[in-house]
């Protein structure tokens, strides 16, 4: 028996919104520790990894590890039937054919349940080593979203350069070119969540497809901060911490100048 209850049901809506345009089908693995998911986009250049710890749920029970093969667009359709303030409970048997979703309104006046058919999904699972990255940038997620959105109007490829002073996002295209530099905040600058912080061992410059960075920014509503982890010649990790429960991380292979 698997049962997971989230008082803040809208969180689940936001998570599926953050993934479903990049990945159409995925296995969500449920164990005693919580929920995890790893899935690549169709072209295998990016990967999305979700981690939700059992302690972040209001109730969590998983007697036996199971894998839920989900069509994320269909799950998104069902989650649209939940109110934003609803409590959401997920339920499945030990060898499930379906996932049951129960939505309860805050005053318990409306209770609905839906069953989503599960699928057998063959997936490749990549072993991602726990790396120390040469640069880790922490910045407001809304700022990152804006930069990606703005630069995508001009070109397809974004050059991200991280130095001690700041992070420069550059783009060039047929109509011209553009740069946005965000500078490291000084300690006195306002709220923690509005700050840009850079931890750097050595400067890094990498090129990325803005189309994919755009997909990643669908996770912006999940939290105020995004972290970018970069090292030379390896995929970037764009990590959105989800307060109190876990995180969603996207990996994107850099573009190589030929």
């Amino acid at each position: 028996m698997f049962e997971a209850r989230l008082t803040e049901g809208s969180l689940l809506k936001k998570i599926i919104e953050a993934i479903k345009d990049l990945v159409q089908e995925a296995n969500v693995d449920c164990s005693e520790e919580g929920l995890t998911m790893q899935a690549m986009d169709a072209s295998h250049v990016s990967l999305c990894s979700l981690n939700m710890r059992h302690g972040g749920f209001d109730h969590y029970r998983c007697d036996r590890s199971i894998s839920l093969g989900l069509n994320l667009a269909n799950l998104g359709k069902i989650l649209k039937c939940a109110g934003n303030d609803d409590v959401v409970t997920l339920k499945a048997e030990d060898e499930p054919d379906t996932l049951t979703l129960m939505f309860e309104s805050p005053n318990q006046e409306r209770i609905s349940d839906f069953e989503l058919k599960l699928m057998d999904i063959e997936t490749e699972h990549l072993g991602i080593p726990n790396e120390e990255y040469k640069c880790t940038i922490s910045m407001p997620s809304g700022e990152f979203q804006r930069i990606v959105r703005d630069l995508a109007v001009i070109g397809e490829t974004c050059i991200i350069t991280c130095t001690k002073e700041g992070v420069k996002f550059s783009v060039s295209g047929d109509l011209g070119n553009g740069n946005v530099t965000v500078r490291q905040s000084s300690a006195a600058d306002g709220d923690e969540k509005d700050q840009v912080k850079i931890q750097m061992e050595e400067p890094v410059t990498l090129n990325f497809a803005l189309r994919y960075l755009g997909f990643f920014t669908k996770a912006t509503p999940l939290g105020s901060t995004v972290k970018l982890h970069m090292s030379p010649d390896v995929p970037i990790v764009v990590e959105y911490p989800i307060d109190g429960i876990g995180s969603i991380s996207y990996f994107l292979a850099p573009k190589i100048d030929e």
Partner: peptide
């Protein structure tokens, strides 16, 4: 010209 590599170039199958 930009070459977009796949993630499999960087990570092994688990």
């Amino acid at each position: 010209f930009w070459l977009q590599r796949q993630l499999g170039k960087y990570y092994e199958d688990a």
